[in-house]
């Protein structure tokens, strides 16, 4: 493996120092937060010895528990739906040529880069308009947990599609053709060859969707209604009221949850070892 050119000693040292400063910048705030979540003191900033007391404390807060439940419901439903829709989208974009494919491809990735606030107000205006329209012809609807679910699916479809498509891109298209050449029908070739091979990609996409859904605050805050507060929305408004030891504890748990999800996703996205058949002869 080429390590590139030899950088001069001075430059090399600066690069190294910069890199470690960046890692410190990334991790120290999180580590401090985690450490202080085990602070026994009632006052967040004064170290009063090691204690895990805020964790059980937190679980006695009904608001937190209901927000957690909401978050889990939203994350579960939106992940399931966006995984199915996003996977089908990735397959269509990767394997087929059809009219409108280019447009669809462009549109499909916009939800990822559009700023959260924009996506949030777009959906808010949409629901307002849709409720007004539906109200005229029948059902009186209002914002609630289900509008959060609908919104999360909208951005998660894109995430799943990107991850699954990356996996499809690593796959030799000849594999499915070989299966068909060996008398497999189209469906069997997909089910027996392509699907098992992209499954890790689908799972990785699903885990990321889950993580993003559990993390989203801006969009959820705008499109949620009475009784539909999710955990990040709760945390967001709590932060604006001030830092509490309880908040440190919830944050640490949320950090841990998303780290586990992300690590699993990265693990599944690893480039499959020797998927492409190698051509070296034994020596």
């Amino acid at each position: 493996m080429s390590i590139g050119m030899q950088t001069s000693k001075g430059v090399g040292r600066l690069l190294k120092i910069n890199a470690w400063l960046v890692f410190a910048f990334f991790y120290i705030p999180m580590i401090v937060l985690v450490v202080f979540s085990f602070n026994a003191s009632q006052r967040v900033n004064i170290w009063g010895g090691l204690s895990a007391r805020w964790y059980p404390e937190m679980l006695r807060n009904d608001e937190i528990l209901s927000a957690l439940e909401n978050s889990l419901v939203v994350a579960a439903i939106s992940t399931l739906a966006s995984t199915i829709l996003g996977t089908a989208l990735a397959i269509a974009l990767d394997r087929y040529r059809f009219r409108g494919r280019g447009t669809l491809e462009g549109v499909a990735y916009l939800p990822i880069i559009i700023p959260d606030v924009t996506m949030a107000v777009m959906l808010l205006a949409f629901f307002a308009q849709a409720f007004r329209f539906l109200g005229n012809i029948g059902p009186q609807l209002q914002l609630g947990l289900y509008t959060v679910v609908i919104s999360h699916i909208a951005f998660n479809i894109s995430i799943v599609a990107v991850v699954v498509r990356a996996r499809l891109g690593q796959l030799d298209p000849a594999l499915e053709q070989a299966a068909q050449d060996l008398y497999a029908s189209r469906w069997k070739a997909f089910r027996l060859i392509t699907l098992p091979l992209i499954l890790p990609g689908i799972l990785a996409g699903a885990l990321l969707a889950l993580a993003l859904s559990l993390d989203d605050v801006v969009i959820s805050a705008f499109v949620t209604g009475p009784g539909g507060t999710t955990l990040p929305v709760y945390v967001f408004s709590a932060i604006r009221r001030g830092v509490t030891p309880e908040l440190n504890a919830i944050s640490t748990l949320m950090l841990a949850a998303s780290t586990v999800l992300v690590l699993s996703s990265l693990f599944l996205q690893r480039a499959p070892k020797q998927e492409r058949t190698t051509t070296k002869e034994d020596s």
Partner: peptide, 9 residues
């Protein structure tokens, strides 16, 4: 990929 809100917090 970890929680952006918490990181800002």
């Amino acid at each position: 990929w970890t929680n952006g809100l918490i990181r800002i917090f």
